[in-house]
Computed example of a mutant assay.
Amino acid sequence: MNTLPTLVLVHGAWHGPWCWKYLIDELPGLDVRTVALPSGSASLGNLYEDAEVVAKALASVGRPTVVVGHSYGGSPVTEAAATVTGVEKVIYLAALVQDVGESVLSMAGGNYPPYWDVHERPAESADQGYFEVAQPCEVLYSDVPPNLAEQAVAKLGRQSLASAMQPLTRAAWRELPTTYIVCEDDKAIPLSLQERMAARAQRIRRLRSGHSPFLSQPALLAGVLRAELTG
């Protein structure tokens, strides 16, 4: 009988649960679940809606749980994880780790990163617009095999601007055990920013990988996650 915690995976901007397939294949015998964030769906939800979906997914497990947030996924995980009983640990995978009052955009220095292809709505519109990713193969999948990178690019969607502008109201890393997995060759989140955010975690692990090790090095990442589940 498997006594390890359930692993809940939360994707980043532009992605969906599809991005975890190869990683899940490397985790046989574990109870692994995924979350689909509204901010990257056709409805272009916001950060708080994302956090609500994450909280509901965690609460539905009904047993000890470890949650992994990748990239933007770290934001709704940080907002939601400490509100649910049973979450034993938060793992940030090249993820944003904000404090209360900080937003995705503020972590980026208040300016849109150069690889964001931003589509703003008129000021009178309730919809704040969306952003896509420019040069995804170079930014997100720098060390992913080209054919697999092209398949992933074809699945990428839009990300709501609201999700990047709303501040956190709660910081799970202040209340729960946390690990940060630094991706040292990441082209999306600079290593210097990762190091700064990793200092908020209790444990730091490192991968010599680009932004998406679940595609480029799924077996290696699976080994790191298994170690976190048992340690």
Score class of each variant (00 low, 15 high):
N2R: 15
T3I: 11
T3P: 01
T6C: 14
V8N: 01
L9C: 08
L9E: 00
V10A: 03
G12A: 09
W14R: 00
W14I: 01
G16T: 06
W18N: 12
D25K: 07
D25S: 11
G29P: 02
V32M: 02
V32A: 07
T34D: 00
T34S: 05
V35C: 05
V35F: 03
V35M: 03
A36M: 08
P38D: 10
S39M: 05
G40D: 07
G40N: 13
L44Q: 13
L44N: 06
L44K: 10
G45T: 10
N46Y: 05
E49S: 11
D50T: 13
D50Q: 12
E52C: 14
V54Q: 01
A55D: 03
K56A: 15
A57V: 05
A59C: 11
A59T: 10
V61K: 09
R63Q: 13
R63P: 01
P64E: 05
P64A: 11
V66S: 01
V66H: 00
V67M: 00
G69F: 00
Y72I: 03
G73Q: 03
G74I: 02
S75H: 05
T78L: 01
A81C: 06
V84E: 01
V90L: 02
Y92K: 04
Y92D: 01
L93C: 12
A94S: 15
L96D: 00
V97S: 04
S103A: 11
S103L: 07
L105E: 04
M107W: 04
A108S: 15
H119Y: 08
E120K: 13
R121G: 11
E124F: 14
S125L: 10
S125M: 11
D127N: 10
D127H: 08
Q128A: 14
Y130E: 03
V133F: 04
Q135T: 15
E138Q: 13
E138S: 14
V139K: 01
L140Y: 09
Y141G: 04
V144G: 01
P145W: 08
P146K: 10
N147T: 14
E150Y: 06
E150M: 12
Q151W: 06
A152E: 00
A154V: 09
A154L: 08
A154C: 09
L156V: 08
Q159A: 11
S160R: 04
S163I: 04
Q166I: 11
P167T: 09
L168V: 08
L168C: 10
T169G: 15
T169Y: 08
T169N: 14
T169K: 13
R170V: 11
A171T: 11
A171W: 03
L176M: 12
P177L: 07
T178N: 05
T178I: 05
T179V: 15
Y180W: 05
Y180K: 01
C183M: 06
K187W: 05
K187M: 14
K187D: 08
A188S: 15
L191D: 02
S192L: 08
Q194V: 03
R196C: 06
R196V: 08
M197V: 06
A198S: 03
A198K: 00
R200K: 15
A201R: 02
I204W: 02
L207C: 09
G210L: 00
H211L: 06
L215V: 06
L215F: 07
L220E: 15
A222W: 01
A222S: 12
G223L: 10
G223D: 14
V224D: 02
R226F: 03
A227D: 13
G231Y: 04
G231C: 07
G231M: 05
